[in-house]
Design a protein around this nucleic acid. Structure first.
Length: 779
DNA sequence: GCTGGACATTTTTTT
DNA sequence: AATGTCCAGC
């Protein structure tokens, strides 16, 4: 047996848990590679193992040379093959490795921190400690790391601040005022979007101004852009688009630095490539250089973020941009049952701009897809709860279920039904921790302490809590600062020196003193102490305490102290700067991901990448899904992709719900079933007739008089009271059931708010019953 | 400078 | 229906 044959056999054995296509992707280490990974096709496994292959065995799979020590290796290779033990095979194969790459030479780019974390974890478990050297992060985190080192070459300070969308909007609004452009002539949102698109194509304000010509609006936008960029720079701040754009600019203007990174990163992987925008794909191309060891993974059919600048063209045109790129399709699905895949294929094949894939599975056909019509959203929500209750009774867990919808507004009626039925649920999305007003306020204080040039954050907190520093004063302050080319805090400090500020001078000085005191405190105290000092010393806590519904906000603010404590414990360098830096690129409190057994409620967008045994799609109606708007072809194709994503979340069963009459945004409308329902082959669905009106868990008019949060709170309380009145039983207790007679509890398992009892009845039968429904009596 | 009521707005969301 | 934003009037 020859060396290379054996080597190949060992590799195939080592990666034997992969299918042929997946293995092909793992083996292809050199040159541009596009992996079109269908939903549920084992994409993450492929990326992780491809990296493992690069690091452990290098080009062994494709190299056919025979090393000098080949003869000596043959015997151990044979015995490894015969043994079939992965650890043994791995050790032998490492001896056959051809130019394996050091872990730090691999760059793995993802879109979310969550995905990056997942990769790191899985790499750690396959490769061990050495996996820590692999650069795995989001586009933004990777670029920030690079910019922190070199951005001074572009005239910024290396300790720049990162502005989020909210900060940027404030800045834009401020500029519009300054330029005397009314918000109706140019809505800030539109300006932001425009500037964002410009930055994504690396176009400067100057470029836009030249192109604007006589177009008044384009002219406005260009001028806003110009001022916006200048103000960001003055505040030593970058927005999210700058992070990518400036990295590109750094590389383009400093080839020596680019060369260093090109040399460093020999292998580049990009996950979710269908979600990249033009500047991100340019960055990848720049880093790839002539070596072009770029592997992009994605699914053109799951591109659902074009509204924020992602372009399917990146993935569709990958093989054009990288001549002779290899394309591998992963079409075998390991997630869903046959009928669900057939439905998904049926929907997506109506799109024209796609590479073309057809999912298949070895799994059985499974249940038919249930298309259910109900009178209103109240019955819709009840139907979902009742169905879940039934299935839980049969042994399912609450966490096996998800309810997906196109818009967050649908979550309200669903939530009501869940509260009433006492079923554990969790609504994902909505306002995130770091986006809460109170959190942003405290972070604004911390930002100003860390970077006194941060004018947007300074404006945010200068009069919060109220210090009698009004808008007019702030404007004057900004003007003076602008003229003298110093920051606003410095002007405030010396307010008495400027006649135009005389009236508020004392207040301004007081504010400046406060900030300076906070800074001094932060320099000698721990991070978490600083955070709580800020909360107290600024009077913010007191302000919340006096607010009507301030308790929750107070809790959140205190939560920020624990979050700082946690950061101090886990970070190598727990400075204020590092803390703010970390938070700027993190969207939510990660520790909140506790594994509790509850039904998941979320938008289709946030469900991407997740899977559930049973999925309910609520509001599968024309005008809602696909959503109504001035539809262009590309928009309607994106809606279809969204439907495809929704359907492919389901593993075993899928319910598509639509109602006759829906109340949304205060209007009641008659609804037709979604056009996508007709694209699902008849053979895999089952339609349920319209259900009669029922109001088991429905909200009555009088109940809805109250505010929503009060209403839910009351419902919860009465549900709890009822819960208490239902007796609970311990193992061994004797109970009576209306139908089955007397029996003994043999097990009791908490299920959300309910208990699941296993009862052995005296007639010999053993039944599993939910406490709520069984109506048991103690004997 | 602050407050209350009119008024508009409401796809999706990460960084 | 619910919520945030804006502006007029105090």
């Amino acid at each position: 047996m020859d060396y290379n044959f054996l080597k190949k056999a060992l590799l195939d054995k080592y990666f034997g848990f992969l299918n042929a296509m997946q293995r092909e992707a793992v083996y292809t280490t050199e040159g541009p590679l596009l992996v079109l990974a269908g939903a549920g096709s084992g994409k993450t496994t492929v990326i992780v193992n491809r990296i493992a292959n690069i690091v452990l065995f290098g080009r062994a799979a494709t190299d056919n040379s025979v090393p000098e020590n080949a003869q000596a290796l043959i015997a151990p290779m044979k015995s490894a093959l015969a043994s079939g033990k992965p650890e043994y095979i791995r050790e032998i194969l490492k001896k056959c490795a051809v130019a394996p790459a050091a872990p730090y030479r691999v760059l793995c780019i993802t879109f979310t921190n969550k995905a990056a974390r997942e990769f790191k974890e899985r790499l750690l478990s396959t490769l061990g400690e050495s996996a820590n050297d692999i650069w795995a992060g989001t586009f933004h985190s990777v670029c920030v790391r690079i910019l922190r080192r070199h951005i001074d070459l572009l005239g910024y300070n290396n300790s720049f601040t990162i502005y989020d969308t909210d900060d940027c909007k404030k800045l834009i609004t401020e500029i519009l005022k300054e330029l005397n452009i009314s918000e109706s002539a140019l809505p800030p949102k539109m300006a932001m979007q425009s500037i964002s698109r410009s930055k994504e194509s690396d176009r400067t304000a100057h470029d836009e101004l030249l192109d604007a010509g006589k177009d008044r609006l384009a002219h406005y936008i260009a001028r806003v852009y110009e001022s916006y960029q200048a103000k960001l720079k003055a505040a030593n701040a970058l927005d999210f688009d700058d992070i990518i754009m400036l990295t590109n600019r750094l590389f383009e203007s400093h080839p020596d630095i680019l060369d260093r990174y090109r040399e460093h990163f020999q292998y580049i992987l990009v996950d979710e490539y269908q979600d990249t925008n033009p500047s991100q794909s340019r960055l990848v191309a720049l880093l790839a250089g002539k070596r072009r060891n770029v592997c992009v993974v994605g699914d053109d059919d799951q591109s659902i973020y074009s509204f924020r600048g992602a372009t399917v063209d990146n993935i569709l045109g990958f093989d054009r941009e990288y001549g002779n790129a290899k394309i591998i399709r992963l079409e075998q699905n390991y997630r869903s049952v046959g009928n669900i895949l057939e439905a998904a294929n049926g929907i997506i094949k109506n799109n024209s701009s796609r590479k073309g894939k057809e999912l298949w599975t070895e799994a059985e056909d499974g249940e038919k897809i249930r298309i259910v019509q109900l009178p209103t959203q109240v019955e819709e929500a009840n139907f979902i709860c009742e169905t879940i209750a039934e299935r839980v009774k049969k042994g399912a867990k609450y966490s096996d279920f998800a309810v997906l919808y196109r818009v967050n507004a649908l979550s309200n009626s669903l939530e009501t039904a869940f509260v009433k039925s006492r079923m554990p649920y969790k609504i994902f999305g909505g306002l995130r921790f770091y986006e809460r007003r109170e959190i942003k306020d405290i972070l604004a204080y911390l930002s100003v302490i860390a970077n006194p040039n941060d004018s947007v954050r300074l404006r945010r907190i200068i009069n919060l809590p109220k210090r009698a520093i009004g808008e007019a004063t702030v404007e004057k302050l900004a003007t003076v600062a602008d003229e003298l080319n110093v920051n606003m805090l410095t002007v405030a400090e010396n307010a008495t020196a400027y006649p135009e500020l005389s009236r508020a001078a004392l207040k301004l000085k007081g504010f400046a003193r406060l900030i300076n005191e906070l800074r001094e405190y932060s320099e000698v105290n721990s991070l978490s102490d600083t955070v709580s000092y800020v909360i107290e010393q600024t009077g913010y806590r007191k302000m919340l305490a006096e607010e009507e519904n301030g308790e929750e906000r107070e809790q959140n603010v205190l939560e920020l102290v624990s979050s700082a404590k946690l950061f101090a414990e886990t970070s190598e360098n727990p400075t204020l700067d590092e803390f703010l830096n970390e938070l700027a690129l993190v969207s939510d409190l990660d520790s909140y991901e506790e594994e509790n057994d509850s039904v998941a409620l979320m938008t289709v967008h946030s469900a991407k990448g997740l899977e559930f045994n049973t999925v309910f799609i609520a509001g599968f109606e024309e005008g809602l899904f696909p959503i109504m708007r001035q539809s262009s072809d590309s928009d309607s194709e994106e809606e279809r992709r969204l439907a495809y994503v929704a359907v492919t979340r389901a593993k075993k069963s899928l319910y598509l719900l639509h109602v006759e009459n829906r109340m949304l945004y205060g209007r009641s409308e008659f609804k037709q079933i979604s056009k996508f329902a007709q694209e699902i082959p008849q053979s895999v669905c089952e339609c349920r007739p319209l259900r009669k009106r029922s109001s088991t868990f429905g909200q009555s008019g009088s109940e809805m008089q109250e505010s929503r949060s009060n209403y839910l709170e009351n419902v919860r309380k009465s549900a709890q009271k009822e819960q208490k009145s239902i007796e609970s039983f311990e193992v061994g207790a004797r109970v009576a059931h209306v139908m089955f007679g007397a029996g003994e509890i043999i097990s009791a398992t908490p299920m959300g708010a309910d208990m699941l009892y296993e009862i052995e009845f005296d007639n010999g039968s053993v039944k599993r019953l939910m406490g709520t429904y069984a109506k048991l009596k103690r004997l």
